[in-house]
Amino acid sequence: MKITDIFKKKSSSDVAKDRLKLVLVSDRASCSPEIMQKIRSDIIEVLSKYAEIDMDGIDINFTQMDTEDNSGKTVPALYANIPIKNINHSVK
């Protein structure tokens, strides 16, 4: 971190852009908070069969990523960061 960064606050228009990008991704995917919650609990349920999950560290969200053809366009993507405490080796 540079000294100048201390004085540089994120401008409100940048905040607006970031918030809009996120809200539009979920608008476009027409994904309600209820559905999001279902996806989340389903993912946890499946993973819990194989591993012990750190419930507090879970971060699942829709975001945008660049398309693979490098055309500069973005597509919605599901981002999931799920910390694992222990792998459950006893699963058959």
Partner: peptide
């Protein structure tokens, strides 16, 4: 826009494509 407190037309175009 100049002082960073309003999105510019280009910013809006970027978002809406």
């Amino acid at each position: 826009i100049k002082r960073g407190d309003m999105m510019s037309a280009d910013d809006v175009v970027d978002i809406l494509a």
